[in-house]
Design a binder for these strands. Structure first.
Lengths: 149, 149
DNA sequence: CTTGACCCTGCACTTAACTACAGGGTGTAG
DNA sequence: CTACACCCTGTAGTTAAGTGCAGGGTCAAG
C-alpha cells in the first residue's frame, strides 16, 4: 500500500494517476503548488510518489471547497513543522463558515424554487403559471392575474 | 402601492433602485437581458418601472442560482405568451436538480471538514494535528475516504 | 463661466482554474 | 526509417459576470 516501487513518471502518467489534466501539472508548478520536478536527460519532468500524494491532497482540498490559493497557503503552513496547530485549525474553521453559508443559501434557493415548481401544474399555457408570475415581478401571490394581453 | 408615477430614471438612479452597479446596466443591455432603453435628447438612457421590475427579477433569479444565460432564456420563454407552462417548469426543475446536488456536495465537505476540526485540539505544534495529517496524505481514516457523488 | 456630477462610446482588464495552440525535440514500435 | 505518441517552452484563449478607464458630451448650481 505504501511506496514500494521506484515510481517515477512523466507528465501524462502522473496526471492520469492523480486524476488531473496533464497541462494542469505545468500550471500547478507555475503557481507554486507543486515543487519543480527533477528532469531527465531530455528535459522531461520526472515525478515521484511524493508528487502524487501532493496532487491527491490538492484534489481532496479542492473537494473540501478550498481554492488553489488557499491550498497553497495550507501547504506552506503544514510544510512548516513550526506552524502552530491553531493556525491550521483556524484556517479550516474559516473555510467551514463559508461552506455553511453556501449550504444555507442554496437551501433557501431550493425551498423557493421547489415551492414554485410544486405550485405549477405543468399543464396549460403560460397564463397563471406561478413561475412565470414570479418572474414577471408580481409577487408569487396566486390570484393576481396580471398577464398582459 | 404607487406605480402610477411616470418614473423615468437614468442609469445611476435605476442602478441604485435595483441594487446593481451602474455599469452592469450597460452590460445587461449588451447581453440582451434588458431591452435597449429609450434615449432622451442628449442620448442618455431613460429607464422606467418595467426595467426596474426586470432587473429585480434578474436579481431574484440569480439568487435562485440561475446564470445570466439561463435568465435570458427564461425571460424569452416567459415573454412569449405561447410558451407552454411545462417548458418553464422543466427549466426550473432542471435547476433544482443542480442546486440539490450542490447542497449535498457541500454537506459532504462540511461533514469532512468539521470532523477534522473537531478532532483537532488547536493546541500544540503541528505534529499529530489531524488536519495536517489529512493534508500530508496519510489518510486520517482509511474507512470512509472521499465518499463522493 | 466654471466646476463637478452625471452621461456617452469603445475597449481593456479582472479572477479562477485551467485549456489550447505553435513550433519544436525525443523515444519507441514496426 | 518512418510514424506516432509523447515531451518541451511560451503564449494566448476560455468562461462568467462584471469593472475600469480614456476621451469626450451635458446639465444644474454657484
Amino acid at each position: 500500500m505504501k511506496d514500494t516501487a521506484p515510481s517515477s513518471w512523466t507528465r501524462a502518467t502522473l496526471a492520469k494517476l492523480a486524476g488531473v489534466g496533464a497541462e494542469s501539472l505545468r500550471f500547478y508548478e507555475q503557481q507554486g503548488l507543486i515543487e519543480k520536478p527533477a528532469r531527465n536527460e531530455a528535459g522531461y519532468r520526472i515525478y515521484d510518489g511524493g508528487d502524487l500524494e501532493r496532487l491527491q491532497f490538492i484534489r481532496r482540498a479542492q473537494d473540501l471547497g478550498f481554492s488553489l490559493q488557499d491550498i497553497k497557503q495550507l501547504l506552506q503552513l503544514t510544510g512548516n513543522i513550526k506552524t502552530p496547530r491553531k493556525t491550521v485549525r483556524d484556517f479550516a474553521e474559516a473555510r467551514l463558515v463559508v461552506i455553511r453559508r453556501k449550504i444555507s443559501d442554496l437551501q433557501a434557493m431550493e425551498k423557493s424554487l421547489s415551492r414554485l415548481v410544486a405550485q405549477c401544474s405543468g399543464k396549460g399555457a403560460l397564463r397563471g403559471c406561478p413561475i412565470a408570475e414570479f418572474i414577471g415581478g408580481q409577487n408569487i401571490k396566486p390570484q393576481r392575474e396580471t398577464c398582459h394581453e
